[in-house]
Simulated assay, not measured.
Amino acid sequence: MSSSDKSKAKLPQWDALMLESLKAYGWSKEELLRRIHAGELPQDESEFQFDYKLLTATAASDPAVFEEAVFNGYQIKYSTLRGISSWILLALGEEPELSLEPGQESVSAQLSVEERDRLASTVSYGWVIHGEHQGPAGEKSAYRIEPLHRL
């Protein structure tokens, strides 16, 4: 089950995805934060077509929370199935499988224990991660993420 850590900064899902896409540039946390505040960000050419000006606005509206998110991690305020799938792709570099069959909606991915723990601490309340680690510590195992309650 995902953890709900009250001390973590909370970010909207889209802001979390933009932040993760910028982390791929390999900038230090300090440089990333500086660039976001200054609006010195690249043009996104990915399938997501992120408008990073929105992230700059978020950072300006609550600098302390945003800095906390960059330096110490965050929890997404409200996660969606497609958002979780996108987050796994951007943050963990894994290509997840999305199942949209009514009543069986889920995201499946091969993750390490560390990746699974990071995902669990990031998704919003209301999601369950099924699966147990199999094999040596460094290997990836199959996990399925689905809603805690179905309508």
Rank of each mutant, 00 (worst) to 15 (best):
L119K: 08
S28V: 04
S99I: 10
S106D: 05
M18L: 03
S99N: 13
L54H: 06
R150V: 01
K23Q: 11
S124R: 13
P102Q: 11
S86G: 09
D62H: 09
L100E: 11
E67N: 08
S86V: 05
W14K: 15
A64P: 00
L111F: 10
R118T: 07
L33I: 02
F66R: 01
E40P: 08
R150K: 06
G39W: 01
S86K: 12
S112C: 11
S46F: 05
L81I: 14
W14V: 12
E40H: 14
E146G: 15
K140M: 10
A109Y: 05
S79W: 00
A57E: 06
Q49G: 08
R150G: 06
L92N: 12
F71P: 03
Q49A: 13
E132G: 14
V65H: 03
L33E: 02
E95M: 11
S2R: 04
G103R: 13
E114A: 15
L17W: 03
A57G: 05
S86D: 12
P63R: 06
L151K: 09
Y125A: 15
G131D: 10
H130Q: 12
V128R: 14
T56Y: 00
W27Y: 11
Q43N: 12
R35F: 02
E101P: 06
E132M: 12
Q49Y: 03
A91D: 08
E114L: 10
P136T: 10
T122W: 01
L111A: 14
E68L: 01
D44M: 11
L151Q: 12
E97A: 04
V65K: 03
T58D: 03
D51M: 13
G39D: 07
Q134M: 13
S108T: 11
D62Q: 09
F50D: 08
S79A: 08
P42D: 12
P102I: 13
E115H: 13
E67K: 05
Y25D: 15
I145P: 14
Q134G: 13
A24F: 00
G39R: 08
Y125M: 13
A9L: 01
E95H: 11
E146L: 14
